[in-house]
């Protein structure tokens, strides 16, 4: 049996760990509410953007954004977390990315410090990196869009994909891959009547596509952040419970050790008294 002092030290250390996990749980819980709200209100916007794009696709469009491409690399935008301690969140997104086609030769656009360092550890290049921050801002999405769009325009990249964790509810998350460009899948076989563009198709598209890509990246960042906080909240809740169990177990051991030492002391005293008689 370990000495009382050892056990006491161990209890103290588990207790301080528990204080950290409990604090992280509370922070994640309070931030989750904001992140979840943002993600859910943003969905209406993202859906409206999709609807509009889909409708445009049902008309005759000639823009280069709607044509499938053979040449060029794949581009993956991967949304990860800045920090660890959020259960399987980072591991899942990393695995999905490594399993995707883009992990090899593609252009890798990464958000999240943690994800970036994991990729660096594996020797995978990162072409563009953006820190995650506490809550995603439209500016971040803007910067990411401004990096990937020119690559698509100049033909270096044939496909832009967005890989993120979709927030279902607190316990459920789902990794999603969204093909942002080109939009060839939305092209209808039988085009309806012509669509009017003001001032011209190319002029509208150059602005519209930027807006569309930014919107979808922003949505991915928001969903990812909500998922991250949910994952962290659940993980830290479990960790706090585990620490509780450990403290209980150690306290039991400590009491046993204490009793044993008292019994031994009494036995020694009695033994000593006997010897004097």
């Amino acid at each position: 049996m370990r000495s009382m002092r050892d056990i006491r030290r161990r209890i103290r250390s588990v207790h301080s760990t528990q204080q950290i996990t409990r604090a992280m749980n509370m922070i994640a819980t309070s931030r989750l509410r904001r992140a979840q709200e943002n993600a859910i209100t943003n969905r209406a916007f993202t859906n409206a953007v999709w609807d509009a794009i889909q409708e445009i696709g049902s008309h005759q469009v000639s823009s280069l954004f709607w044509r499938p491409r053979q040449e060029g690399r794949l581009c993956y935008i991967v949304v990860g977390a800045d920090k660890g301690l959020c259960g399987p969140y980072n591991a899942n997104i990393l695995r999905s990315f490594l399993e995707s086609e883009g992990a090899g030769e593609g252009v890798h656009v990464i958000t999240g410090r943690r994800l970036q360092s994991q990729l660096r550890f594996r020797g995978i290049s990162v072409d563009y990196y953006e820190e995650g921050g506490d809550l995603p801002t439209p500016k971040q999405a803007e910067r990411l869009a401004s990096f990937v769009l020119p690559l698509f325009m100049n033909g270096e990249v044939r496909e832009i994909n967005l890989l993120y964790t979709h927030f279902v509810n607190i316990l459920n998350r789902e990794i999603k891959t969204v093909k942002l460009l080109p939009l060839d899948e939305f092209r209808a076989d039988k085009a309806r009547q012509d669509l009017l563009w003001e001032p011209s198709e190319e002029a509208v598209f150059s602005k519209l596509i930027h807006h569309y890509v930014t919107s979808l990246i922003y949505n991915g960042l928001l969903e990812g952040k909500a998922s991250e906080y949910a994952a962290r909240m659940v993980a830290m809740d479990a960790a706090t419970d585990n620490a509780d169990d450990m403290i209980k177990e150690l306290t039991l051991q400590y009491n046993q050790a204490r009793q044993a030492s008292i019994t031994q002391e009494i036995a020694e005293i009695v033994g000593g008294a006997e010897a004097l008689r």
Binding site: L196, W197, E198, L208
Partner: peptide, 19 residues
């Protein structure tokens, strides 16, 4: 406020996309 000036839209308008 369309990019080419003000634009009034009534039901039955021709499909149009503009900034």
């Amino acid at each position: 406020p369309g990019s080419e000036g003000q634009l009034a839209v009534y039901p039955g308008h021709i499909p149009l996309v503009t900034t």
